[in-house]
Amino acid sequence: MDLTVTDLSIARGGIPVLGHVSLTLRSGCALVLRGPNGIGKTTLLRTIAGLQPPLSGTIGLPSEDVAYAGHADGIKSTLSVTENLRFWARIFGTGDIAPALAAMDLAALAERPAHSLSAGQKRRLGLARLLVTGRRFWLLDEPTVSLDAASVALFARAVRTHLSNGGATLMATHIDLGIAEAEVLDLTPFRAAPSAAAPGGFDEAFA
């Protein structure tokens, strides 16, 4: 089953940002969202993840098959890398965390408490969490922030493995990951037009 978004309009802080967005994400595909700051990439991803309701439009989505990774990684600094990852594996009901540790090159850091990790290492731990969710659709918001070139390559490899296993990713990023099959969707044409309600009406303040 695919992830389909039909005629979606979304708002940030009560102000419409994007209108009439439609997209389809098939298994094995990667879609990259582009657009200037503030266009609503994060809001779009959060809406698709179900964290906030859309203004209008529908999101067709296999139930419980989405993993979201935002700006914050949800890492507890007093827990070790293994403990952090094992917690998420148990929450998502998947077992083995070793492949995820290996994929993101965290095996050597496994017993380190998370507060002693660098920003890039924390980010890698956050991305390793995606691998233990066992979910098919990844929604990624700037996944490569604070990663060095080697780590970006590592991450790109993880994404490609995921795609070849029938997964799919929708991500907002400005870095070219070197994933050949990735399509790019520029959000600029979908920017919401200023409210069409006739000036002078009291309806316009209420979405």
């Binding site: 959060r46 964290l51 700006h71 914050a72 990684d73 507890k76």
Partner: peptide, 15 residues
Amino acid sequence: DYEDGTLDLMATAPI
């Protein structure tokens, strides 16, 4: 949990 993003992730988790 709100500050470090855990709640976001919890809200999309199966529980």
